[in-house]
Simulated assay, not measured.
Amino acid sequence: MSSEYERLLRETAAAIPYLAFLGIRFETAGNELTGVLPYAPDLIGNPLIPALHGGVTAAFLEVTAITGLVWSGLRQGVIAVQAPVILPKTIDLTIDYLRPGTARDAFARARINRSGRRYASVHVEAWQDEPDRPFAQATGHFLMQRG
């Protein structure tokens, strides 16, 4: 995969302060994009379990879905390889909290169900130890922005 795509992806993520605050980053392997949420004590919502805050989980899922759409658009040539990238806008996002996210790193991957000129539908899952055992998942619909 082009290092130019990866550079643009890093620049886009760096331009979003909330990503830096949460520590979210993205890793690529071939055509696959994985979101990484490194564990930090500030991300815990329930210290008794301890479990990741639901808002942190939701943000992680949403930003992974949006970044997955950008990554896919770059690879398909639908999004120009130039900064700044115009990000898709969230129409709605439905989150299923399947089990507590515990005090360790989390990972997420998006699957694009449909991506057209104006609209996209994405499913994203987050896990910690095993990709086949997600702790949260989301389905989102996005308004595609074309520059």
Rank of each mutant, 00 (worst) to 15 (best):
R111Q: 14
P47D: 04
G116L: 08
I66A: 12
R117L: 11
Q128W: 00
R133F: 01
Y39H: 13
M144W: 00
A138W: 05
R133K: 14
T28G: 08
P50I: 02
A65D: 12
Y119I: 15
I86H: 10
A110E: 00
I79A: 03
S115H: 12
Q145H: 08
S72L: 12
P100M: 03
L33E: 01
M144R: 07
F107N: 02
G116F: 09
W71S: 12
N46E: 12
A110W: 05
G54Q: 05
V124P: 00
G35P: 02
L48Y: 10
S72W: 13
S121Q: 12
E4F: 12
G54T: 07
R118T: 15
A126L: 08
N46D: 15
R7W: 08
V56W: 02
N31P: 03
L8D: 01
D42L: 09
S3L: 13
A83S: 15
Q137D: 10
D105L: 02
E125D: 13
R104S: 07
P131S: 09
T12F: 06
L52V: 09
Q137G: 15
A14V: 10
S3T: 14
V78S: 11
Q82D: 09
R10K: 15
Q82M: 11
A106D: 02
L22T: 15
V124C: 00
L22A: 09
L9E: 07
R7P: 00
R133P: 00
E125G: 00
D96V: 07
